[in-house]
Structure formats: structure tokens, C-alpha cells
């Protein structure tokens, strides 16, 4: 059995494909900053979009940093759900499902900021005009089910935030919802979160930076103890099985 070692991880990072992210959030700079922060595992999670994940994966090749493709999906109820995949193939199945359910609006770059697809060097490829800042008409439970059926991790983001956080929007943990973990803000410890919301008792709670600009990458992280930086290993660590585990920083 491979030795289990610590992977400093930040599983919630935006790129210039998110209208609200800074223009510096391009693949080579994200990879350089992640490495300088001592991270070994990151996930790229743009709002309702995955098109920049491959470029960040390519930029990280050979550096020792593992990049997982993902998305910060906004459900029909306006709850943000991190969807993290082990490879591009399931992400490429999930993306058209999301795109088909977006609001029929165009992004206004003046108002929200532009949404750029870039290559591994960070050079401009195209601007996306889909309205990624709004919800897609897929219910939360169904989205989580689909992502998990594709082998991905479903993790509601910043759950105690009033806007787009699961508990802020839906008040209670939905009884029919099955997810792999939940992301809490660092100013609310897992202990406090579970005291306030008893429904979180059995849900692994992790923390991430939700970086929209470079200098926040890795400022909030989770340390996973894994045999390899894969989605299967992450799932084991979240469940605390086979000697894998995690702790928040």
C-alpha cells in the first residue's frame, strides 16, 4: 500500500472565467501562487463553467501540483454547490447539462466583469457570454445526485453565508440531500457550525479559500492525508476510511 502523506489542498479557486474574479487569475499565475503557498492539490471551480480547468491542469504539469477540474454550480434554489471531478471527462458531461439549464440571458461584462477562456499560458482564447452568474434550473438534490453519479464530489459551498449558502437560502439541511462534504467559512469552526446546525453532525466539513484573486489562494485550506491526490482518495479521506483522513487548517 502506498504511504499516506499530507496534501495541502484548496478545492475552491476561480479563474478569469468567473466574471467576479480578478484578471490576474490565469493558469500560470494560479499554479505559481499555489506552489509558493505549499499546496499540492487544488480544484478549479468557476461559476457554472469548466472551460479553464484544462488549461490550469496543463500549466501544472510536471510541477508536483495536482489540479482537479470542477465548477461552482448555482442551483435552481440559488445555492452554490462545488462539483469536483477526478478528470476532464465527467466535467465535460456535466457542463452541457448545466449550460442547457442556464437563464437565457447574456453576461454584461460592464456590470459583472468579463468571462475569459484562456490557454495554459494565460493567453486569450475567447470570451464567454453565457449568464454564468445566475442559477441554472436544476434542483440542488438532483445536481448533487448527477455529479456523484459521474464519480464527482458534491460539496455545498460556504453553507452559512446568507447569499447562495445552503443554510442561508434553504434554512435547514434538506432531508433528501446526499453530498460528500460541506464547505464552512473559517470564522465558524466545525464545532460551532454543528452546535448551530445539528443536521451537520454527520457531514464532513472542509474549508477553502474561494479565491477570486491571487493572494487569497491557499489562505484557507484543508489538509488531506491520502495515498495519492485522486478523487477516490479524497472521498476516502472525507469518509475517514482506510486510514485516510483530513483536517482543516
Amino acid at each position: 500500500m502506498a504511504a499516506i502523506r499530507a496534501y495541502q489542498a484548496d478545492l475552491h479557486i476561480h479563474t478569469v472565467l468567473s466574471a467576479c474574479a480578478e484578471v490576474e487569475m490565469i493558469p500560470p499565475l494560479i499554479v505559481a501562487e499555489a506552489l509558493s503557498q505549499g499546496l499540492y492539490l487544488i480544484a478549479i471551480t468557476d461559476h457554472n463553467a469548466t472551460a479553464n480547468a484544462a488549461a490550469v491542469m496543463e500549466a501544472a504539469r510536471g510541477t508536483g501540483l495536482t489540479v482537479l477540474p470542477g465548477m461552482e454550480f448555482q442551483t435552481q434554489e440559488e445555492v452554490d454547490l462545488l462539483c469536483i471531478f477526478g478528470s476532464l471527462a465527467p466535467a465535460l458531461i456535466w457542463q452541457p447539462e448545466v449550460s442547457a439549464h442556464l437563464l437565457p440571458l447574456q453576461n454584461d461584462p460592464e456590470l459583472f466583469g468579463p468571462q475569459f477562456v484562456v490557454d495554459a499560458e494565460g493567453d486569450f482564447v475567447r470570451e464567454e457570454l453565457s449568464f454564468y452568474q445566475g442559477p441554472a434550473q436544476i434542483p440542488l438534490e438532483e445536481a448533487a445526485r448527477t455529479v456523484r453519479a459521474l464519480g464527482g464530489l458534491a460539496i455545498p459551498a460556504h453553507i452559512t453565508r446568507p447569499a447562495k449558502g445552503l443554510l442561508g437560502v434553504l434554512g435547514l439541511w434538506p432531508s433528501a440531500l446526499h453530498v460528500d462534504a460541506a464547505e464552512v467559512s473559517p470564522n465558524l469552526s466545525p464545532l460551532e457550525a454543528r452546535q448551530r446546525f445539528s443536521s451537520l453532525a454527520d457531514i464532513p466539513l472542509i474549508t477553502n479559500s474561494d479565491a477570486h484573486w491571487l493572494d487569497t489562494i491557499g489562505q484557507i485550506r484543508t489538509i488531506f492525508f491520502l495515498a495519492a491526490p485522486t478523487i477516490t482518495e479524497l472521498r476516502r479521506a472525507l469518509n475517514g476510511v482506510e486510514g485516510r483522513y483530513f483536517r482543516i487548517s
Binding site: P162, L167, G168, V169, L170, G171, L172
Partner: peptide, 16 residues
């Protein structure tokens, strides 16, 4: 059933 007064909100944490 009798109703009295109104509350209007979509954020369920506010409603609670």
C-alpha cells in the same frame, strides 16, 4: 383557518 399578518421572503434562513 384564520390568518393574520404577512411575511414576505425567499431566503429561508430569514423566514425562520
Amino acid at each position: 383557518r384564520e390568518a393574520q399578518g404577512c411575511y414576505i421572503a425567499d431566503l429561508l434562513s430569514c423566514v425562520m
